[in-house]
Simulated assay, not measured.
Amino acid sequence: MREELQRITELMDTSQLEQAQQQLIHLIEQQADCAQLHYLLGQTYYRQQQWGKAINAFNEVLALEPNHPDAQSQIDMANSILGYFTPDMFNP
């Protein structure tokens, strides 16, 4: 699995996010209890601004590994983006 993760990381580094997602989803089907796979999948969604899917993936990470060092901060950042509101945009 180490080589597969390295290939996925290379895809992510070169912004080939859809290909990385496909490979991650395939691996998750085989190893659904691997928090690292869910975290990487969340990262691909986050980079594509698919906030809901990213949050779901990061929540899955926390379900598998409650003390994951980065998953909660990623959820908080996505929620912050979703909750961004500027009243000046609506009051000319």
Rank of each mutant, 00 (worst) to 15 (best):
A54K: 02
I75Y: 07
G83A: 14
F58G: 00
P66T: 14
Y84R: 12
A78H: 10
D70H: 14
N79T: 04
N67L: 09
E60K: 08
L82W: 06
F58K: 01
K53Y: 04
E65I: 04
N67Q: 09
I81L: 15
F85C: 09
N67G: 08
E60V: 05
W51E: 01
Q48V: 04
S73A: 15
T86N: 14
L82Q: 14
E60Y: 03
Q49D: 08
A57W: 02
S80P: 06
Q48D: 04
E60G: 00
A54S: 07
K53G: 00
P66H: 08
Q48G: 04
E65W: 09
D70Y: 13
P69W: 09
L62R: 01
N79Q: 14
S80Q: 15
D70V: 07
L64S: 08
D70N: 13
I81A: 15
Q50V: 04
A63K: 09
N59A: 05
L62F: 04
S73G: 12
Q48C: 01
F85W: 12
P69H: 09
W51G: 00
A78I: 07
A71Q: 05
Y84Q: 12
Q50W: 02
F85T: 11
G52C: 04
P87V: 14
N79W: 06
L64G: 10
L82I: 12
S80I: 08
N56D: 10
I75D: 05
I55T: 03
A54R: 01
T86L: 11
V61W: 06
Q49Y: 13
G52E: 06
I75V: 11
L62H: 00
A57R: 00
A78W: 01
I55E: 02
Q72N: 11
H68A: 09
L62C: 01
N56R: 07
V61M: 05
H68E: 06
D76H: 11
E65R: 08
Q50F: 03
M77A: 15
K53C: 00
E60Q: 13
T86I: 09
L82Y: 07
I75T: 05
I75A: 07
G83Q: 15
W51N: 07
W51Y: 08
N59Y: 05
A63G: 07
P66N: 09
G52F: 01
P66D: 08
P66L: 14
P87N: 13
L62W: 01
Y84D: 12
Y84H: 15
Q72V: 06
T86C: 14
Q49T: 10
D76Y: 11
N59M: 08
A57S: 10
H68M: 11
K53S: 05
F85A: 13
A54H: 02
E65C: 07
Q49S: 12
F85G: 05
I75N: 07
S80E: 14
Y84V: 10
H68N: 10
T86F: 13
Q72W: 06
D70C: 10
P69D: 08
Q50R: 07
N56H: 07
T86P: 08
T86H: 14
L62G: 01
A57G: 06
K53D: 02
Q74R: 12
S73I: 14
N79K: 13
Q50S: 04
I55F: 00
F58Y: 11
D76S: 11
Q50T: 00
Q72Y: 07
D76Q: 15
F58S: 00
P66V: 10
S80M: 13
